[in-house]
Design a protein around this nucleic acid. Structure first.
Ligand SMILES: [Mn+2]
Ligand SMILES: [Mn+2]
Ligand SMILES: [Zn+2]
Ligand SMILES: [Zn+2]
Lengths: 136, 136
DNA sequence: ACAGCAATCTGGACTTTGTCTAATATCCGG
DNA sequence: CCGGATATTAGACAAAGTCCAGATTGCTGT
C-alpha cells in the first residue's frame, strides 16, 4: 500500500475524522513513513517547507487520531510519547542508546501464564517492550 | 522483611552507595512502602514533617539508586517516571483510569517466539505492561 | 452573494517534569 | 584542625504538553 495525500482524506473519513488540510498533512507524515514519531517530529515534518501548522493543532490532532483509533501511543521514552501508525497488534524493540524504536510482529509471540485480572477490569492492551543496547 | 531506617544504611552500603541522611530517607520512602513512586511523590513524603531534602537531591539520588541497581524505573505514564524498589524480574498491571500500578510476578509468565536480536545488541530488559480499565 | 453558525486553527501564556550550575555544607584522613 | 573530596542546595533553565480567547474556515439557508 502506498500512502498519498489523496488517500489520507478517505482514511480520515473512514475513522470518522473530518479531513482538513492540517489533519491530512499530519496523517501523511505518519502513514507515508510508517514510523514512530514524536509530536515534535511531526511538527518539524509538517512545517518543513513553510510554517503552516501550529503546535496546538499538532497536539490536538494527534490526540484526536488516538481517540479515533487511527494511531496508537507508544510509551518507552520518559521524555516523549511516540505515535505509531501501525495499529495492528505488535510489540516493540527499543534501542536505549539511540532511541530507535522498531516493531515486532505479534503473530509468533506467545505470552502465557498471566494471572487473572482484578474483577471488573478489562484489558485495554498489552505492551511488550524489549529494551536493547550495543554489546559493550 | 521489615524495612526500618536503620537497615537502610546497610542496604545502601551493599549497593556501593554512601549512606547519607537524605539517601536514607529516600530509600526508606521507597522500601518501607514497597510501592511505585514518582519523584514528586518521593519529594512529598520525604518533606512531610519539615522541608529537609531539595528537589535536586531527590532527582540526583533516584538516578544514583537506578545506576547502582537499587531501584528500577517503570515507564508507563507519559507524564512521569515511576521508581520501583522491587528489582526482581516482574511485570506490571497499569490501571489507566486511576494510574494505579501493581506487580505481576514473572515466575509463571512465559514469553516465547521473540525474534532474534539485531547483531551486536544485548537485551537490557523486557518490560511487559498490561493496561487495564474498569469494564464499561 | 451574503449573513449566521459550528467546527477548526492559532499564538502565546502557562504548567509540569526534569536538568544544570555555582555556591555552600558535610565528611574524613592525616 | 586542615584540606580535599563528596554531597546538598536554591534557583535558573529547558522541554513536553495544556489551555484559552480570538481569528479562520467552510458550510447552509435565504
Ligand atoms: Mn501544505
Ligand atoms: Mn529527618
Ligand atoms: Zn509500532
Ligand atoms: Zn514493580
Amino acid at each position: 500500500m502506498h500512502y498519498t495525500r489523496d488517500n489520507m482524506a478517505g482514511l480520515l473519513r473512514s475513522h470518522d475524522i473530518n479531513p482538513t488540510h492540517q489533519r491530512i498533512e499530519i496523517a501523511h507524515a505518519l502513514f507515508s513513513r510508517q514510523e514512530h514519531l514524536s509530536a515534535d517530529q511531526v511538527m518539524a515534518i509538517v512545517n518543513t517547507r513553510h510554517s503552516e501548522t501550529s503546535k496546538a493543532t499538532v497536539y490536538n490532532t494527534l490526540k484526536l487520531f488516538l481517540e479515533k483509533g487511527l494511531v496508537r501511543e507508544v510509551i518507552v521514552d520518559p521524555s516523549k510519547v511516540f505515535f505509531d501508525p501501525n495499529t495492528s497488534p505488535h510489540h516493540h524493540i527499543y534501542e536505549v542508546d539511540t532511541g530507535k524504536l522498531s516493531d515486532i510482529d505479534a503473530e509468533h509471540v506467545q505470552i502465557s501464564g498471566l494471572p487473572p485480572l482484578p474483577t471488573g477490569m478489562v484489558t485495554e492492551g498489552i505492551d511488550l517492550i524489549v529494551r536493547v543496547r550495543r554489546a559493550s
